[in-house]
Computed example of a mutant assay.
Amino acid sequence: MKVVKELSACGGKLIKLSHDSISTKTRMNVNVYLPKQYYAQDFPRDRRIPTVVYLSGLTCTPDNASEKAFWQFQADKYGFAMVFPDTSPRGDKVANDPEGSWDFGQGAGFYVNATQDPYAPHYQMYDYVHKELPQTLDAHFNGNGVAKLDFQDDVAITGHSMGGFGAICGYLKGYAERKYKSCSAFAPIVNPSNVPWGQKAFGGYLGDERTQWQAYDPCALIKNVKHVNDDKILIHVGDADPFLEEHLKPELLLEAVKATSWEDHVQVKKVHGFDHSYYFVSTFVPEHAEFHAKNLGLI
Rank of each mutant, 00 (worst) to 15 (best):
E255P: 06
G166P: 02
E255V: 08
F73M: 13
N113L: 03
Q72F: 07
C219I: 02
Q152H: 08
A289P: 01
F202Q: 04
K179G: 04
G91E: 05
K13C: 10
L234M: 12
H227F: 06
N113I: 06
G170T: 04
P134V: 13
T61V: 03
Y126K: 10
P98W: 04
A75Q: 00
D217C: 11
D63H: 11
A120M: 00
C183W: 01
V225M: 01
D150M: 09
V52H: 01
V4N: 14
G238L: 05
K13H: 13
V195Y: 03
Q135C: 12
T51Q: 02
G11E: 14
V195E: 10
S88N: 05
V53M: 09
Y180L: 07
S277K: 09
Q124C: 05
A65G: 02
D138T: 14
K200I: 12
P286Q: 07
G198M: 03
E290P: 00
H227D: 10
I299N: 11
P188A: 10
V225Y: 02
Y180M: 09
Q124H: 08
T283A: 12
Q37T: 11
H160G: 08
P218T: 09
I299K: 14
P62F: 05
S184W: 07
R27W: 00
A65M: 04
W102S: 14
K258E: 09
F165I: 03
I235R: 03
L149G: 03
S261I: 06
D138C: 10
L234R: 06
F43V: 05
P286I: 10
H19I: 01
K223H: 02
G100T: 04
C169Q: 15
L234S: 01
S8A: 15
P242F: 07
S161D: 08
A120P: 00
K258P: 01
G109Q: 07
L133N: 07
F243W: 11
D239E: 02
V112A: 08
M125C: 00
D46Y: 05
A256Y: 01
W213C: 08
D153T: 15
Q214V: 09
K36S: 15
G79R: 06
G145H: 13
Y279E: 13
A240K: 14
S261L: 02
F110Q: 06
E255N: 14
V52S: 03
G159F: 00
E99Y: 13
Y111K: 10
S161Y: 04
Y39D: 06
D230P: 01
A293D: 05
Y180V: 08
G57E: 00
S8E: 15
H122S: 05
D150E: 06
R45P: 01
M82T: 06
Q41A: 15
S101Q: 10
T59Q: 06
F151P: 01
V266P: 03
F151L: 07
G164W: 05
M1N: 11
E132R: 10
Y278V: 04
Q152V: 14
N96W: 01
E245K: 15
I15T: 14
L296W: 00
Q199N: 10
A75V: 08
